[in-house]
Design a protein around this nucleic acid. Sequence first.
DNA 1: ACCCGCACGAACACCACACTACGCT
DNA 2: CTAGCGTAGTGTGGTGTTCGTGCGG
Length: 423
Amino acid sequence: MGLLCDFCGEQRSMVYCRPDAACLCLACDHNVHSANALSQRHSRTLICGRCNSQPAGVRCIEENVSLCQNCDWNGHGGSASASGHKRKAINCYSGCPSSAELSRIWSFALDFPPLADSNGEQGLGLISINENSVSNCCGSPAPENGRTIDLYSAGGVNDLDIIDNFNTWIGSSSNSAVALMPCNADQLVGPVDSATPKLCCTETRNHEICKDDELYEDFNVDDVDLTFESYEELFGASHNHSGQFIGDVGIDDLFEMDISAANSNCQGTFTAEASSSGQVESMQAAYSNAVSADSVMSNPGVNADPNRCFSTRQARSSFSLSFSGLTGECSGGDYQDCGMSSTLVVGEPPWYPPGPESSSFPTASRDSAVIRYKEKKKTRKFEKKIRYASRKARADVRRRVKGRFVKAGDAYDYDPLCQSRSC
DNA sequence: ACCCGCACGAACACCACACTACGCT
DNA sequence: CTAGCGTAGTGTGGTGTTCGTGCGG
């Protein structure tokens, strides 16, 4: 028996809300997250069916159970090949889906109790589709006209099916844009698991990616040079032209250009071209989210403001990071070690092992990555790094009062040279 | 179970000034 | 184009302060 709902304390909790850090039953999930627009942005996912406490990242088809990272790792050894079990990723959703929608999207969990939408009706309910703005499933605004689609990502449902369903559902408007989020590099470089869902939640990574996976520290400057000296270096385009860049070229062209640039600047992260137009679109959509997350895109007035280019640049830097081929054992709490900005990371939930091949990530690759990580962690040093020895030498001999530097000639209580107090 | 006070550790601010980077002549 | 000068900003270490966390009553 799983945990009880944190809200009502009566029903069995089924979904985990990361922003609230709460386990909720479907009814309370619906009630709580229909309260306002902000709460609707909360990304949720299923609860691990084994430990009943952690958000699930994968669905074991063989065992018909949703598993968190730890339970998945314990049960499958971290790879499908190790256990022979076929697994699929479970991603997050936001908004206020009805039970019918949940059932349709999470096809493996068809026994959702009926839920009434905000109007008290069964059915589609709130699925977070807003006219006039495009966003990913977490509500981050996407750049262009169209509709906001809060996509429900689901294990067991082919992502393309979901896309098709949503495209069908939202109609045939040419302006409608489905903001699909590529979860990680595997979506960008080629087909993965044939049924791996790739509708992701930016917010998931935004706030959680750095919390659970020690391996994310491999992002540090030792491995990836983040000190991009120029905009061109990173994206092959001058930031001075960002206004025109965005305004004139159009967001789609922008994506194409920058994705290709990022492809060449991420130290092999983007080692192959997306194998299908759908993946390219996913990349573009993800990128749009990364850029828009800091409101650069959402504010039409900022396009011409060069000062905002920094934000855009940061956003893109983070974006490029998010697709690095990380492999990770997701042990809770260690994302906090990661100094990476939490603002603009995109993709799958962090507890799901990211990597070039997602759910079918090769054990050997993972093992090597784990080994590299452990070695690096072993040699990691947090010692202070002296950049200017001359300044250190000066500070070492400088007289102080209660630790503070004092003017030459002033009374002091500590002289590092004589190690005795004066005055 | 809850609240309060205490202890402890981490993070940060503060200080002067040599040094660096940059712009201008 | 180079050299010289002026100016603003940076970095350095020991100590005090602030803040968060854990623990016991």
